[in-house]
């Protein structure tokens, strides 16, 4: 993925290195990751825990104040790593929207959802009534029944799936060019997850909004992303078109990850760990785990 840069390129991460200071010296968490997202593109960054996928995504908006960042993160023609913190803050909600795993933690419990949804617009000088109209419309678009009435409810009055819709509304109401979604459906039940992903996908297409989806779940990637990047231990293992990666992954780690996922359309009893194919007879349990 050395140089895919075109005028469609929205985000370009070049040789990103992230480390955290510890008493024993800096601890490298991301070790030279390069990645590009085109306008309107849906890219999934996948990996297991500790792979550095979240840290990479959070670096785009410099969300971790202790993290030491090197390399370049270009949004359009600006390098985020060279901006002042005020400039970075102004990107949030405007050019880049954020959705995290836990919607309850992302919402202010003492403000109505309507207040929170309209903030990104209000901060940019949109009038109260106009902001409210846009907010209700967006919430309706996101499948919240009776959105006008529920606009003045508080976060605790919503279910998990509905809360995540509120968070998505806050993230996209100011029409960002990029949405960073970090495990946005991990806390949701499977049917709600499917619906939320569908909505995210539709919104992205309607608004020509790029999405960087961070996830451990290779199942949801298959239905959502156009491109996939696989990370392990702070390094980018491989990246490419979703069909290509799933059909013929170049890296054995990607192959092993895909093989490890049980599927409802698969023959049961297949060995999931250590090689594909039908189950070899083994006398005792394996010791593959490191």
């Amino acid at each position: 993925m050395s140089d895919r840069s075109t005028d469609r390129t929205l985000l370009s991460i070049q040789d990103l290195r992230v480390s955290y200071p510890t008493p024993e010296g800096p601890c490298a968490v991301v070790k030279g990751v390069s990645l590009e997202i085109a306008r309107g593109e849906r890219l999934a960054l996948v990996g297991e825990s500790g792979s550095g996928k979240s840290v990479t995504a959070r670096s785009v908006l410099r969300l971790d104040s202790e993290a030491r960042l090197q390399g370049a993160v270009r949004l359009g023609d600006q390098n985020v790593l060279e901006m002042t913190s005020g400039q970075v803050r102004r990107l949030r909600g405007a050019r880049v929207g954020l959705v995290f795993q836990d919607p309850l933690a992302a919402l202010n419990p003492v403000k109505t959802v309507g207040w929170q949804i309209t903030q990104p617009l209000r901060l940019r000088g949109v009038g109260r009534r106009e902001a409210r109209n846009q907010g209700v419309e967006l919430l309706e678009r996101l499948g919240v029944a009776d959105a006008a009435r529920r606009f003045d409810d508080y976060p605790h009055q919503f279910s998990g799936g509905m809360r995540q819709r509120v968070v998505i509304a806050i993230a996209v109401i100011a029409d960002p060019e990029l949405l960073i979604a970090d495990e946005p459906t991990t806390a949701l039940d499977v049917r709600v997850q499917a619906r939320v992903l569908e909505l995210l996908s539709e919104l992205a297409q309607e608004r020509d909004m790029a999405v960087l989806l961070i996830t451990h779940d290779l199942g949801i990637v298959a239905g959502f992303a156009e491109r996939v990047a696989v990370m392990r231990e702070g390094e980018l293992i491989e990246a490419g078109d979703v069909d290509r990666i799933y059909r013929s992954p170049a890296h054995p780690y990607t192959r092993a990850l895909l093989d490890a996922v049980p599927r409802i359309d698969d023959s049961p009893g297949r060995r999931l760990s250590g090689g594909s194919g039908p189950a070899p007879r083994r006398s005792a349990a394996g010791k593959e785990e490191q």
Partner: peptide
Amino acid sequence: AVPVPDPAVERARAAARGWDGPGAQSAE
């Protein structure tokens, strides 16, 4: 709603699904 780690399968299912069916919505 169970995701299948296969892009071709997922596309076929999405096409067949026709969202806003009774399932997900009524559950929420």
